[in-house]
Design a protein around this nucleic acid. Structure first.
Length: 845
RNA sequence: GGCGGCGUAUCCGAAAGGCACAGGAGGCGGACUUAAAAUCCGCUGGCCGAAAGGCUUGUGGGUUCGAAUCCCACCGCCGCCACCA
């Protein structure tokens, strides 16, 4: 038997050096080839790489390497998302500078990526903290400003006391905590910078339909986040302090204008600007302001608890219900959100559960206005247009579809999605100037300013005379100064030499903006910069973006389903409108990979269950780790780490290694030995072609685990052949053919081993990574004969072996013979022949 | 509460409506070896039944000649959103 031993550590770094010096993985714009842009989400340089990185980047590398072998011109870049708070925290801890920590981590990670054999075009690397990169982020900000997409406004914002900065809505998790540090977020009224992503809300929602290559759950999450609601804006006239209509109006948004006749009170959010004015100096001031103050004190965590009791207070004011002229009391309650709609709500307690609970608590009327036909009240109120009933016997509000009652001229109309009620009431309001059809989005504008040092400076200047003015484009970049000492708690606002400047408009003394941009602005366009990463004159050249974009395959974690992917889609649409790109969506296909776990939990330092990739590479080599992490689970599922699994992978690669070495040896020794026995050779040849087809197909659909299983099957078939056919009798040409195909198919998964076997053992020409992908010959993979199961009334009762090309008629006859004893003299009602699979016989009885 | 996903052997997992479990791990055994490691070769789901055979993809229905797969309901787990008017 073979003495050959698989020693990956002997050659892996050798090939990494060769590939790097050959620039083997450089991307070239070649108009004669189809292109493929394979991208993995660029890492944050938070330290050494972890298994999540290994998995993410191995998946991308397999796709990129296979695409090259299939003749594509491939762009497969890497870079670093290098601004951000962890660098500041680490700098404080180690008494250094964020840049020092960041660059050291980038070095470490880059070395690890090279050691994994990832086939990146290192000449296109970007680091978002490099001025050559972030200057274009500033340029983008100015361009967005020109287009009216930058806004500076004061509003209640999310403030993380621990990170001492504001957060975008998307960065507050559903339990009201900071996405990064998990501290409770509080609301603060602050003037901040916004990108007006809401301008694109409708298109961001609609274009999800243009993304068949995205997982449904990501699209659903985005659609939920954008949160489109159709309804109407309804104008209520305000009454003055004496209760008389005063001509002023307050508008609400509602999805249920058809329930307007059931509106018995009106609600304002505690933050609503009119609240203070309504109650100032009145008997209601104390109770109302206690509600307002309490809401202001509460964190998002407390206020968002769904099961908490609603509280509120009457303001003493009234509004006029436009459909029936009734005077409706105005209350303040903490369950009304200032951020959504208009911050004012028409309350219909019979049709909305929250309003129902509020009405019960404060003894407000609950007249039914929509009834299901099986409701006990239906007989009494059907067709009744005047309000005769002001209470319901229900335990909860009825929000379902039904028929309108006690609703004046609209009584009798059907409600709900397909009903006439909504449209009829809306049209009535429009005709009288008291409302209009409206659409509301849950999506808020993107708050991009951060009160932190380690980020991209916002290129704006505050002038006492001219107001806020943009930094002129020719004065870019606004360079982030390096002399800021974060260990002393400094930010840009502590450095007059940075912020003292002159106004570009009036030349008077002015103050430079000291906020930096959210790091998500940096990651919203990096994939475009890779197309032309070294361009100093422009963010990129249009023809280069046209060649490479959109990204054909994007791979990353599900945690970016909303944040990064939504922001990038927004940027792309703006770039399109600027004429910088010619497409609507940046990422054609998206793969969200699962997490790597240990003992059922996410690997983390605090849990002490981290398996460091470096240790595994030192022991088994990078190829083993790559193949292992692809084999253990489908890429989108979570993966449970297992050292036994790594061992098993290492054993199999050794098995492949020995087969290839032995095949070459035997060809040398018995070069012209005639094939001895024919059947085993035929079987192996057929298996080889079957596996070529399987692996090709499986990589296409990202089933790397089954692709590798297929390669194991081919390996097993090769060993089976050698087990059955004696040395000297073996078809050495066939063995070599199998070895060559096996090595080619392995190349994307285990690039070093494949290269070593290709160049040193098989002595083929060139690099295996430049060799063509093996062609699949369906005819060669097809068997001469097939065995079919024969079912009688759904149960397998026999088997027939028939020629692969047998006619349906012949198969049917053979099948009926095979199960004759199960049929006996029963009537055969039906026979279904599924070629190559099964014969199904249906008999009577 | 809303939306989405998942549930297959001891474990990780295959199965594009067609014989349920490919591949790996683990376990058992054999060959080689003084021995071990390494390697190579076998065997390896459960329940009922004497056997033939039957039952078994979370549970219960349905569609179909045929369902792990499609539909409905329920149970369990996971994820996202959530006082969004």
């Amino acid at each position: 038997m073979s003495e050959y031993k698989y020693r990956p550590l002997d050659f892996e770094t050798k090939w990494q050096g060769v590939w790097e010096s050959n620039r083997a993985d450089s991307a070239v714009e070649d108009s004669t080839k189809p292109k493929k842009y394979v991208l993995e989400m660029f890492p944050y340089p938070s330290g050494d790489i972890h298994m999540g990185h290994v998995r993410n980047y191995t998946i991308g590398d397999v796709v990129a390497r296979q695409a090259r072998m299939k003749g594509y011109s491939v762009l497969h870049p890497i870079g670093w998302d290098a601004f951000g708070l962890p660098a500041e925290n680490a700098a404080i801890k180690s008494s250094s500078h964020p840049a020092t920590w960041t660059h050291a981590n980038i070095e470490t990670q880059a070395a690890s990526f090279k050691r994994m054999g990832f086939s990146y075009d290192w000449d296109r690397t970007v680091k978002s903290c490099d001025v050559d990169y972030y200057r274009w982020g500033q340029w983008t900000f100015l361009e967005f400003w020109k287009r009216g997409l930058v806004e500076r406004k004061s509003s209640p914002v999310n403030w993380c006391p621990s990170c001492t900065t504001v957060l975008a809505n998307e960065q507050v998790l559903s339990d009201g905590v900071c996405w990064r540090c998990k501290s409770a977020v509080i609301k603060r009224e602050l003037e901040q910078w916004y990108y007006r992503i809401t301008e694109y809300a409708q298109e961001l929602l609609d274009d999800l339909d243009k993304l068949p290559g995205w997982p449904d759950r990501v699209k659903t999450m985005q659609a939920n986040w954008i949160g489109r609601s159709e309804g109407a804006e309804v104008v209520f006239e305000l009454c003055d302090a004496d209760g008389e209509p005063c001509g002023e109006t307050i508008t609400v948004f509602t999805t249920r204008p058809d329930t307007l006749f059931g509106c018995t009170f009106f609600l304002l959010a505690p933050e609503h600007p009119r609240v203070r004015e309504f109650v100032a100096g009145t008997q209601h001031e104390a109770t109302v302001m206690s509600v307002v103050d309490r809401a202001a004190r509460e964190t998002a965590v407390e206020r968002q608890q769904g099961d908490r009791e609603k509280s509120g207070a009457f303001t003493g004011r009234f509004v006029i219900n436009p459909v029936n002229g009734e005077k409706v009391p105005v209350w303040v309650s903490d369950y009304v959100l200032m951020e959504y709609g208009t911050g004012a709500v028409m309350a219909v307690p019979s049709g909305d559960q929250r309003d129902f609970e509020f009405a019960r608590k404060y003894g407000l009327e609950i007249p039914p206005v929509v009834l299901a036909e099986d409701d006990p009240l239906f007989a009494e109120l059907s067709g009744v247009s005047e309000r005769v009933r002001t209470e319901v016997p229900w335990e909860a509000a009825f929000a379902g579809d039904g028929v309108m009652v006690q609703s004046g001229e609209f009584t009798g109309l059907s409600t709900g999605k397909g009903g006439e009620g909504v449209r009829a009431v809306t049209e009535w309001l429009v005709a009288r100037g008291k409302g209009q059809a409206a659409i509301n989005f849950r999506l808020r504008d993107w708050l991009i300013s951060r009160q932190r040092y380690w980020g991209n400076p916002i290129p704006a200047i505050h002038c006492p005379a001219c107001g806020v003015v943009p930094v002129p484009a020719e004065e870019l970049p606004v360079v982030l100064p390096m002399n800021v000492d974060v260990t002393a708690g400094e930010t840009l606002a502590d450095h007059p030499e940075f912020y003292q400047t002159t106004c570009p408009s009036c030349s008077g003394p002015a103050r430079r903006e000291t906020d930096t941009m959210d790091t998500f602005t940096c990651s919203s366009w990096y994939y475009l910069r890779y197309c032309d990463a070294r361009d100093e004159a422009a963010i990129w050249e249009r023809d280069k973006a046209d060649y490479w974009m959109p990204v054909d395959q994007y791979i990353g974690g599900i945690e970016h389903a909303i944040l990064h992917l939504l922001y990038s889609r927004f940027f792309t649409k703006v770039f399109r409108d600027m004429g910088l790109v010619g497409f609507d969506e940046p990422f054609t296909n998206l793969l969200t990979q699962g997490m790597v776990k240990k003992d059922g939990e996410i690997m983390s330092k605090s849990k002490g269950n981290v398996v460091a990739p470096e240790g595994v590479i030192e022991q088994y080599g990078a190829d083993t780790l790559r193949a292992y992490i692809l084999f253990m689970a489908p890429p989108d599922k979570d993966l449970e780490w297992s050292y036994e699994g790594v061992e098993g992978m290492y054993r199999w690669l050794g098995r492949v290694w020995r087969f290839v070495c032995d095949a070459v040896d035997e060809a040398r020794e018995h070069g012209d030995a005639p094939p001895g026995t024919e059947a085993p050779g035929k079987a192996l040849h057929r298996e080889m072609h079957r596996v070529i087809g399987k692996v090709t197909f499986d990589i296409e659909r990202f089933q790397f685990n089954t692709a590798i299983a297929g390669l194991m099957e081919l390996t097993n078939a090769a060993y089976e052949y050698r087990n059955v056919v004696a040395p000297g009798m073996r078809d050495t040409a066939l063995q070599r053919a199998v070895a060559v195909r096996l090595v080619s198919l392995l190349a994307p998964f285990t690039p070093h081993m494949a290269e070593e076997l290709w160049c040193e053992v098989l002595a083929e020409t060139g690099s295996v990574h430049g060799a063509p992908w093996p062609t699949f010959d369906p005819a060669a993979a097809a068997a001469d004969e097939v065995e079919l199961a024969v079912q009688v009334n759904g149960k397998v009762r026999g088997r027939v072996v028939v020629p692969a090309d047998a006619s349906t008629q012949d198969v049917q006859e053979a099948a009926l013979v095979a199960v004759a004893e199960w049929i006996k003299d029963a009537e055969v009602r039906k026979v279904v022949v599924v070629p190559g699979k099964i014969v199904s016989v249906v008999i009577a009885g």
